[in-house]
Amino acid sequence: MVDQSLSVPKYWRRIPQYYRLTALKCRKCGRVYFPPRAICDCGSREFDEVELPRRGRLIEFTVLRSVTSDFEKQRPLIFGIVDLNGVRVLGQLVDCPNPEKLSDNAEVEVVFRRVKEDSDYGIIYYGFKLRPLKGCW
């Protein structure tokens, strides 16, 4: 139980990023950071919270067949880099049974899904995933 209560804050403190892709926008130069940072490359420390757009373009992807213990039941996993209006994020691609049919620059949308079940304690974790709009089958 001690381990469980310790692992939960590590999860819930990141819920704004996991659920809503909450990023930080620099007040001085306008640069957007996901994940958030304490200081902008321009030197400013003043940011506003912004949510990243829900649609973007796929830049690159790969299919991972050798997964870690928390993801054994979900093998294989598809990972993609997606450009959400100039901010690039790494995420899992879902609803895509035939990834070889994915085209360059495919349009994707952000969806909310179960991410994993912890292999040691059975806690279920949630977060964003990326779904190709035109599917891939």
């Binding site: 590590k10 990141r14 990023q17 996991y18 994940p35 690159e60 992807f61 790969t62 991972l64 050798s66 997964v67 870690t68 928390d70 993801f71 979900q74 996993l77 990972f79 880099i81 790494l90 995420g91 899992q92 991410v115 994993k116 974790y125 977060g127």
Partner: peptide
């Protein structure tokens, strides 16, 4: 917090670079 949380491992990043 932001990469391995989603199941990514070093080989994923290396594969994206290779592609």
């Amino acid at each position: 917090d932001y990469e391995s949380y989603f199941g990514a491992t070093p080989v994923v990043l290396a594969a994206l670079m290779a592609k």
